[in-house]
Amino acid sequence: MKTLTKSALLIAGMSLAACSNGTLFGSGGGIGGSGNGAFGANGGVGVSALDPASVGYFNETVGNKILFDVDQSTLNASGRSILDGQVAWLRANPAFIAVIEGHADEQGTREYNLALGARRSNAVREYLVSQGIAGTRLRTLTYGKERPIAACSTESCYAQNRRAVTILSGSGTS
């Protein structure tokens, strides 16, 4: 059991490292891509970038993504907890700025979902500002239903798509 866990950790770490070039640092511009985050189905085994000041660490360990209920833009406890981590990280790394993307699932019209995504990104921004992050470091962006991360048409995908993603940019030299 112990060895199994270890090897699973190793494999997970390798696969993460393999994709980290594209995923962890590729979206540094913040605008072009929607942040997918590398924190995925790794069976609860914690794997993270080593440098706590890295974008990779923020995306995987702090968590760059929070989820919302259907049609909602209010933050739930789990979302607030992730955002508290983002607050701490942003305080410790003041050279970074962020664009907060708001997304919706495909249930709903294009226009309404754009407005809903804007609500979600703003809810995140307001929370971060309320915890002391300068508003000038945070910009909001809505993609509506234009950039799902999960393509299926069932609730399991919809739940992943109703999200706000904090996309960092900046030199990182703090």
Binding site: S73, E111, L114, A115, A118, R119, N122, T140, L141
Partner: peptide
């Protein structure tokens, strides 16, 4: 952020959604 535009019949006025502070 701005979206959902449409012209008025006068061809000169545009009505649209503008989002500021999360409100559209």
């Amino acid at each position: 952020m701005s979206f959902a535009p449409r012209f008025a019949p006068d061809g000169r006025t545009v009505v649209f959604s503008l989002t500021t502070g999360g409100n559209t």
